[in-house]
Amino acid sequence: MSNKPRVAFFDFACCEGCQLTVLSIGEPLIEVLKHVDIVTWREAMSEKSDEFDIAFIEGSITRDSDVPRLKRIREKARLVVALGSCAALGGPHVSANRFETSELLELAYGNKAEQYEAGEVRPISAEIEVDVPIYGCPINASEFVLVLKHLLLGRPYRVPNEAVCYECKLNGYECVFDKGMICLGPVTRCGCNAICTSRGHRCFGCRGLVDDPNVDAARDVLEEHDYSLDEIIGMFQIYSHRAPRVQQLAEAAAEPQKKRSKGSEPWRFGSTT
């Protein structure tokens, strides 16, 4: 057995797009592979090992019966990296939490619903300690390589904590608010190099909120363009419905007088209808 760090990949409920992003890195990946031993990666290889130093965990937890497997991984790993927004935030299917589990099961399995298990969608950090989160749906491939390099060198990794607007403006992209879109860039964590706005779409908030979202600034931008914060919160449901910070932001937004949106009904945070 070589003394290179042993790396393992695991996945829970997700689309596996983040693992796939790792697989598609190509040459830089081959380069990094020389410095580690990948000992478990079900999607890519048949070997399995219970001994590893770094565990990359993709996917969120949706069933209590998956928790023991997650905890076993934590016990064995020196470092746990949450790979992507499913693991770090809950992922796009957190918005299933808007509905009762029984309703979801019945829609999917009809009168056999009782035979199946489901539960609240949560990030892995709800169950275990996470050393480094890599945000993004999917992750940004270069950030993955950067994180891995930091871990291998034993250096702390600073998770980007500026808003997407920062990267967007740095690149000189046209602000999509001017096209009448509601962009989540003002409060969303950057690190994706504003890939969505680079192509003229809006930010959907896939990397979650920055640590201290500048609620006032966000509100100003929104008010300037005649949107209510309710609307932006509704959009945040796609990626971090239960994240405490979204909740805080929702409360902060609720304080000053509420502004009605133009047009259709605004999304209410936590609404089930």
Binding site: F12, A13, C14, T62, R63, D66, H93, S95, A96, R98, F99, E103, L104, L107, A108, Y116, E117, A118, V121, F204, M235, I238, T273
Partner: peptide, 18 residues
């Protein structure tokens, strides 16, 4: 044995653009 993510159910109520 994979866990269900219930896309069909939770995509409901989303706008056509999302």
């Amino acid at each position: 044995v994979e866990a269900n993510r219930f896309f069909e159910a939770f995509m409901r109520e989303r706008s056509h653009e999302e």
